[in-house]
């Protein structure tokens, strides 16, 4: 490969990886607190991809405004999903398997809904950016990808700030190791869980918007979150930072491999490497544990 091509693929990979990172964190936030794999996150992504398309194409074709609106809608969809399908079974003390089943069912419901309603068409976002590439010497950079990268980074930085510096953020992190004890500090655990779903939903909204903008919208866009889930697992379940790193790595590996061995072989190599990696290091990149001393 020429050095230019490599650099370009690297940047594309990091941009795509940024979106994987968004998905990994959105998925990881809920996993940390409630300990189940929340496939319904894919549903939020899909709904928001359509919603973002709809308002930006038909209501108000402004990139920033519609992105923010979609993010907020994503947050509330997250909250509603929690209230409707997870809270009732949590209050009944249902086993984790039931959470998993509910989350998969919700994702499939969303997918089928869009497949039936709007499945026979592709929906492209408006072209917010007229000129699609920047040329720096021989080096060409896609503007859409740059935009994707900066927005993912921005959103993740804000979330990281909230989780480290605000009371509710610290409470979400505390609830990740113990969901009962926060009540003894006067913390309303239902509110903490709602807030975690709100944040995850915002990430899902941004993910859906960016994916819709970079590609086109179809009913199966939600299944892209499999990549995010893989990133979360490689990153080490429980470590949001690990998920971000793994998301970026996954994006880069994918882009470089596509340039080198082609798009059809790439997934085979990637999935095989992931299985190998987890055999060697089942706790993921940054898996670690602390002991509570009795």
């Amino acid at each position: 490969m020429k050095i230019n091509l490599i650099l370009q693929q690297l940047l594309n990979g990091i941009s795509l990886g940024g979106v994987y990172a968004l998905m990994a964190v959105g998925f990881g936030l809920i996993f940390n607190v409630l300990k189940f794999s929340n496939f319904s996150h894919g549903g939020v992504v899909a709904i928001c991809a359509y919603f973002g398309y709809f308002i930006s194409q038909h209501v108000y074709p402004n990139f920033i405004v519609t992105l923010i609106l979609t993010a907020i809608v994503g947050g509330f969809i997250g909250v509603i999903i929690e209230k409707l399908i997870f809270r009732p079974i949590r209050l009944k003390g249902a086993p984790l398997t039931l959470f998993l089943v509910n989350s998969i069912t919700a994702a499939m419901l969303v997918q089928q809904f869009f497949a039936v309603m709007w499945g026979d068409n592709y929906y492209p976002y408006p072209e917010f950016i007229k000129e699609t590439a920047i040329h720096i010497g021989e080096f060409t950079v896609s503007k859409i990808y740059l935009l994707m990268l900066s927005i993912s980074a921005f959103v993740l930085l804000i979330l990281s700030y909230i989780l480290r510096k605000t009371k509710i953020g610290i409470a979400i992190r505390a609830a990740s190791s113990d969901i009962r004890t926060p009540s003894l500090m006067g913390i309303n655990i239902d509110f903490v869980i709602s807030t975690a779903f709100f944040f995850a939903g915002i990430l899902g909204g941004v993910t859906g918007y960016l994916l819709g903008m970079a590609f086109t919208v179809d009913p199966f866009i939600g299944s892209m979150i499999l990549k995010g889930i893989i990133a979360a697992i490689i990153g080490g379940m429980g470590s949001l930072g690990g998920g971000v790193v793994a998301g970026l790595l996954l994006g880069v590996a994918e882009s470089l491999l596509i340039a080198e061995i082609g798009a059809s072989l790439t997934p085979i190599v990637i999935y095989a490497s992931i299985i190998l990696l987890l055999l060697i290091r089942p706790e993921g990149i940054s898996g670690k544990g602390y002991i509570v001393k009795a």
Binding site: K167, I170, R173, Y290, K293
Partner: peptide, 18 residues
């Protein structure tokens, strides 16, 4: 004890003052 093991001592105390 039930302290929160993954967050810092200071963050444990901040939650105490929730």
């Amino acid at each position: 004890r039930k302290i929160f093991p993954t967050i810092t001592v200071q963050e444990n105390l901040i939650l105490g003052a929730y």
